[in-house]
Amino acid sequence: MITIDGARPPYDVGSAPSIVITGAPEGLVLGIGARPGCPAAAVRALLDRVAAEHGLDLALAQVATLDRRSAEPGLLAAVAPRVPYGFTVAELAAVAVPHPSGRVAAAVGTAGVAEAAALLAAGPGARLVVPKTAGAGVTAAVARRDGVP
């Protein structure tokens, strides 16, 4: 198991290691799923829409995604100066998500990226405050850490 700031995983994820990223105001963690080559403008547009529709400030939210998407130029540009943490397919697949996708499972090997990454990175007792929301080649979900109103 991997932890940051001594935090523990949010729930039993079997043998899959877990990480907890801390430090974001309001305890928000942004999970992002994206197709390869997704442009920064598409990621920004979705994040702006999610923030506006849900009254959230995502400017300092921690970011998590699938490990093989964490270095995508469009994603990096959209969330800079933050650097997304990348979870493996096995880590993400160990998280039960409320909105699984057969298409995503066929493409990357796990039924959900955005929701699973947000929940896994947010840590123990995390809850989704924004379910998976789709944009042009990108999805986003927001989780809030336990104990943060």
Rank of each mutant, 00 (worst) to 15 (best):
E115M: 06
A121R: 06
A64F: 03
A77T: 04
E91C: 08
A90L: 05
E72L: 04
G102N: 15
A111E: 09
P98S: 15
A118R: 12
A121I: 03
H99R: 12
L66A: 08
P81A: 13
A77F: 02
V113C: 09
V97H: 11
A96R: 12
L75K: 06
S101G: 12
A116Y: 01
A121G: 11
T65Q: 08
A116D: 11
R103P: 01
G109V: 07
P84D: 14
F87Y: 14
A106G: 15
V108S: 15
L75V: 02
G86W: 11
V79K: 08
V104H: 12
G123W: 02
P81W: 13
G123T: 04
V104T: 07
V63F: 03
E115N: 12
Q62P: 01
S70F: 02
A122G: 03
A61T: 01
V108R: 07
A121V: 03
G102D: 11
A105F: 06
V79F: 05
L66I: 08
V104C: 03
A114H: 10
R69A: 05
A77L: 05
T110P: 02
L66Y: 10
R82E: 14
L120N: 11
V95M: 13
Y85I: 08
A64L: 04
V89R: 00
E72Q: 06
R82F: 15
G102P: 00
F87E: 08
E115I: 00
V113F: 09
A118W: 15
L92M: 09
P124D: 14
R68V: 05
V89E: 01
G123Q: 05
E115T: 02
A94N: 08
P81H: 14
P81L: 13
A107I: 05
A61Q: 04
A64Y: 01
R69T: 02
R69F: 10
G123S: 12
Y85S: 09
Y85L: 15
G86V: 11
L76M: 14
G123N: 09
A96D: 11
S101Y: 13
V97L: 11
A93M: 09
T110F: 01
A93F: 01
V97I: 06
T110R: 08
E72C: 01
A94R: 08
V104E: 04
S70T: 00
P81V: 10
A78W: 08
P73W: 10
S70N: 09
A111K: 03
G123R: 04
A61R: 03
A77Y: 07
V95Q: 12
L92K: 00
P73Y: 15
V97F: 14
A64C: 08
H99V: 05
P100S: 13
A111S: 11
A71K: 04
V104D: 06
P98I: 12
V63I: 09
A118P: 04
A116I: 00
A114D: 12
G74I: 00
A78F: 05
V63W: 06
A93H: 06
A77K: 07
L66W: 05
A93V: 03
G112S: 12
R82D: 14
R69C: 06
E91W: 02
L92H: 01
A93E: 07
A64P: 01
P98L: 14
V97M: 09
V79Y: 06
L120K: 10
E72K: 03
